Structures are given as structure tokens and as C-alpha cells.
Amino acid sequence: MSIQHFRVALIPFFAAFCLPVFAHPETLVKVKDAEDQLGARVGYIELDLNSGKILESFRPEERFPMMSTFKVLLCGAVLSRVDAGQEQLGRRIHYSQNDLVEYSPVTEKHLTDGMTVRELCSAAITMSDNTAANLLLTTIGGPKELTAFLHNMGDHVTRLDRWEPELNEAIPNDERDTTMPAAMATTLRKLLTGELLTLASRQQLIDWMEADKVAGPLLRSALPAGWFIADKSGAGERGSRGIIAALGPDGKPSRIVVIYTTGSQATMDERNRQIAEIGASLIKHW
């Protein structure tokens, strides 16, 4: 067993022997301040990774656009098919120029040779490549099948209805392509620590998230040296922004954090800054 596999296998073990965790309302004060600064709703939840206990939450059962955070769930569904012998990570998928959609920095470079399922998941999570996500959605049967996968996990809230990039439209009061912070946090925890996926697939999923290259201005910008984070960000229309993450000190994750916002007129930089400040408060009061 590799060191990384050992780390993920012992996530519940280490967490069980940690000192009790206590909620700190100071972080919620910052979440509410972010709402004021952005002029928009902000949803927040913080779960203990081992027990699933909610440590703090704000608007945990209000719907927010998922945006690209759905790509972690998508690759979880792909990995479940791999575990069941219905898919192979090494299978190569070929596609054409007509398949390319807006923001496809990886797939646009491989029109000639195609990409493997493993490479597509890596591109979808680490670079948020939209064509990679659409190609992977095709392998599982489309958005409705991802929703069905989530329902089978016990998540009857999260739903995907459309493809990239239309799913980022974020129309107010439109339930399409949305989740709730509580539902997303619980589902992410199941994917990373539950028995739904094999140990190898859980490790692969967290490795992809740990290698995320496009979430630097968010929670990662607030992390002290030595902290662990595996995350996936999302951005959408109407001032929408979000991030889902597993993080913790001492090089291992111990909490799940989900943050979503929508309806702001603020710039992307300002949305990023507010999420980073929430992260800084979380870490300060850990």
C-alpha cells in the first residue's frame, strides 16, 4: 500500500482519535458579512469528516447552483462504474471539434489522439474542462443518470439537468442544476469515506481534487503551510461562485467545507476574496 493510499485508508482512524471539535460562531459572522459585502445569498456548511456531524452552517438547506462543483460527483459516478466493471479508466475516447464547448483548455489539445477516461476526469476536476465533463456525462448516460446515481446514494436534493455550459445559467428560483450545502457536503463525505467506492477509487477521487489547479484564489489562499486540501470550485452566471473541499491540518483532511453564493453584482475577484476570507476565519478558529 502506498503512503497516499495509507493516508486515505486511515482518515477515519486518525479522526477518531482527534480531540473533540467545537464550532466557532466567528466564522458564521464572516459568512454573514460576506453576504453584506456581496449583496447576495451565501450558503455555508462545515462537517466533521469522521462523524458527519454538522459543526457550523448557514442557509444549509437553500438551493444554490452547483456550477462546476458537480464534476466531482460526476467522476465519482464514473469511478463507481469502474468498480462495477462497467468502465475502464484506460479506455480512450475520441471526439471532434464539434464536441468542444466553451472553456476546454485540455480537451482542445487532444482532438487528434483523444483522451482516456482517467485523463478526462483529471481534466474535468483539476482544470474544470467543460468538454471533458460533457464527454464523461455521455459515458454514464447524461445528466439524468448522474441525478439517479445521487438518488441511489441517498441524495434526493442534488440534481443535474443540463450539460456544460448551460448548467451554469443560475436563474433565480430555478431548481435545475442545483444542490443544497448540506446535501453536497453529505454526498461528498460519502464519496470520500464511505463504502460506495473502493479504496482505490476513493484515493483516485481525492487525488484529482488535491491536484486542483484553478481554485488557488479561494480556500487555498488562506491555508497555512502543512495543511491538506482537496477541492473543486465552480463559477456561473449572475454572480455565482462555489467551492467544495476536504481539508485539515497535519497533512490530512478532517472536515468537509461547502460554500456557495449566487445573485451578486460583485466582480469575480471580490467573490473570490470573500470566500478566501471565510476560509481564513475557519482556519483561525479551527
Score class of each variant (00 low, 15 high):
residue 231 D to F: 02
residue 97 Q to K: 10
residue 247 L to W: 12
residue 134 N to F: 02
residue 74 L to H: 00
residue 144 K to P: 09
residue 141 G to L: 11
residue 188 L to R: 00
residue 184 M to D: 00
residue 170 A to H: 11
residue 132 A to L: 01
residue 205 L to I: 11
residue 99 D to A: 08
residue 105 P to M: 07
residue 50 N to F: 09
residue 124 A to S: 11
residue 203 Q to H: 05
residue 100 L to D: 02
residue 143 P to C: 11
residue 221 S to C: 12
residue 196 L to H: 12
residue 95 Y to A: 04
residue 162 R to W: 02
residue 158 T to H: 00
residue 260 Y to A: 03
residue 267 T to M: 12
residue 233 S to F: 01
residue 36 D to F: 14
residue 269 D to H: 13
residue 234 G to P: 00
residue 113 D to L: 13
residue 138 T to S: 13
residue 231 D to N: 07
residue 286 W to C: 02
residue 272 N to P: 02
residue 55 L to R: 11
residue 97 Q to S: 12
residue 285 H to I: 04
residue 282 L to N: 03
residue 41 R to H: 12
residue 164 E to K: 00
residue 48 D to R: 03
residue 61 E to K: 12
residue 283 I to T: 13
residue 166 E to T: 11
residue 134 N to E: 01
residue 247 L to F: 05
residue 74 L to A: 14
residue 228 F to S: 06
residue 166 E to Y: 14
residue 47 L to W: 04
residue 96 S to K: 09
residue 189 R to K: 14
residue 24 H to G: 08
residue 101 V to I: 12
residue 133 A to M: 00
residue 221 S to T: 15
residue 109 K to P: 07
residue 238 R to V: 08
residue 118 R to P: 05
residue 165 P to H: 13
residue 133 A to I: 03
residue 129 D to C: 02
residue 31 V to E: 00
residue 135 L to F: 13
residue 122 S to F: 13
residue 230 A to N: 00
residue 118 R to C: 14
residue 79 L to P: 01
residue 65 P to W: 00
residue 63 R to S: 08
residue 258 V to S: 05
residue 146 L to M: 06
residue 182 A to P: 08
residue 232 K to Y: 00
residue 250 D to V: 10
residue 252 K to Y: 13
residue 284 K to F: 07
residue 60 P to K: 09
residue 237 E to R: 12
residue 164 E to N: 02
residue 127 M to Y: 07
residue 119 E to D: 15
residue 171 I to R: 15
residue 59 R to S: 05
residue 25 P to D: 08
residue 246 A to L: 09
residue 137 L to H: 04
residue 85 G to I: 05
residue 62 E to S: 07
residue 119 E to S: 12
residue 239 G to C: 04
residue 82 V to Y: 08
residue 145 E to V: 07
residue 177 D to H: 00
residue 222 A to I: 05
residue 40 A to F: 04
residue 63 R to F: 13
residue 151 H to P: 04
residue 259 I to A: 05
residue 221 S to W: 14
residue 24 H to A: 09
residue 155 D to I: 01
residue 258 V to E: 01
residue 42 V to H: 02
residue 285 H to G: 09
residue 215 A to N: 05
residue 64 F to I: 02
residue 178 T to P: 02
residue 265 Q to G: 08
residue 50 N to M: 15
residue 268 M to W: 12
residue 199 L to I: 12
residue 138 T to P: 14
residue 225 A to E: 15
residue 252 K to H: 07
residue 221 S to V: 14
residue 94 H to M: 07
residue 237 E to A: 12
residue 61 E to W: 09
residue 175 E to G: 11
residue 185 A to V: 08
residue 266 A to R: 10
residue 72 V to F: 03
residue 67 M to C: 12
residue 205 L to F: 05
residue 184 M to S: 03
residue 123 A to P: 02
residue 258 V to Y: 02
residue 276 A to F: 11
residue 153 M to R: 08
residue 90 G to E: 13
residue 114 G to W: 04
residue 225 A to Q: 08
residue 131 T to D: 02
